[in-house]
Structures are given as structure tokens and as C-alpha cells.
Amino acid sequence: MKSPDKHSSSGPDRWLDEHGDYLFRFALTRVRNESTAEDLVQETLLAALSALHQRSGQSSERTWLTGILKHKIVDHFRRSWREQPLEDDPPTGLADEPGMDEFFAEDGHWDHKPASWGNPFRSLEQSQFFDVLQNCMQRLSPKLAQLFVLKELHDMSNEEICKELGVSPTNVWVMLYRARMNLRQCLESKWFENDREAL
């Protein structure tokens, strides 16, 4: 496995060659399209260039650049958050509004009961699994996907997410809930059902 810390000393003129593809993939895992990911790499390198004098030698160059890219991704989400259509917004969060109930029957029972996935952790050794996961993330509405990324890939707390995106705490949990419900359903039908048949 490649360790990011292997690349520790190169100048700005080498950044693109040494870290460009890495940063591009990092961005592409989080945003939906290639040209956005390319733009984010560019913004990152420009920001890095102007912040070069403030850089302390504590972390590797790649870690440092990745940290800048993470901020650029959050900025991008914040911008697109404001531009996205209202229909994407969740209900105001009161428990029984539409969008929250699509997974349950009226008596509160599951519409599709979550099945046992056996030992799902074996799937983490298969690269095809991650393609399916990415694909399922892409099927989420943009806002749900962005929240999921901030939560699970950037490891931000709900409070941090509220602050960064200007969303209410209720909306954050409702949307995370919907993202997870959709992802679980998608993984179950696109991966684990087939997986079980193959066993």
C-alpha cells in the first residue's frame, strides 16, 4: 500500500505531478462530476501556493494539500447547497411528514425488512463493492449525498455540519437518516442479494 507520507519533499512545481491524481480521486469520491473535481484540484493548488509560507513542516505535503482540498470541498458544498432546488429539501423535520415514511407501513413496520448481510466486512476486500457503494451514493439527491460525505468521509459532527451549511439540526439528522436508509436499501439490492446467491 502506498503511504501518503512517502512523498514529503517536493516544491510547488512538482505538486501536480506527485499529488494531482491523488487529489483528483479524493475529490471525485466526494463530488459528482469530473470537471468539479478538476476545479477543486486547481483551487487547492492555488490556495496552497499562497499559503506556502505559513506551512509548518509538521505533516507531509500530501496530507497538507489534502487538508486544503477538504476545505475547498466544504466550500463547494456550501455554494451548491444554496443553489440547489427547494424540492431537495427535506420536510421541516416533524416526524411524520412525507419523505420520512416511505420506508414504513402505516403501523410503523418496515416496508422492506433489512435482511441479514452475513459477514459484510468481507466485502471491503473487494474493489467492486466500493464501485457499488459509490454508485449508490450517486443515486442520492445531491444534498443527501453531500451530507453523507461530510458526516462519514469528513467525520464532521452534526453541529459542525449545521454551522458550515447553515442547516438546522433537525434537517441534518432527517437528511442523514434518509441518506442512510436509501444507501442501505441500495446496497442490499445491488450487492448483498447477489452476494448471497453467489455463496
Binding site: D21, T29, A115, P120, S127, F129, F130, L133, R184
Partner: peptide, 27 residues
């Protein structure tokens, strides 16, 4: 089952980046 799936989802999401650095698909 749902609880186990949520825990798994968390773990899987965290490994998306490791997957990326191992395969050299997107450039």
C-alpha cells in the same frame, strides 16, 4: 440487522479513500 448495516456503512465509507489510493483508475 439495520443497526449492523449502519455500522458497516460507516466503516465502508471510511475505506473509500483507501480503495482509491490502491487502484489507479481515475486520473
Amino acid at each position: 440487522n439495520f443497526e449492523k448495516q449502519l455500522l458497516f456503512l460507516k466503516r465502508a465509507a471510511r475505506q473509500l479513500d483507501e480503495r482509491d489510493s490502491q487502484t489507479d483508475q481515475a486520473r
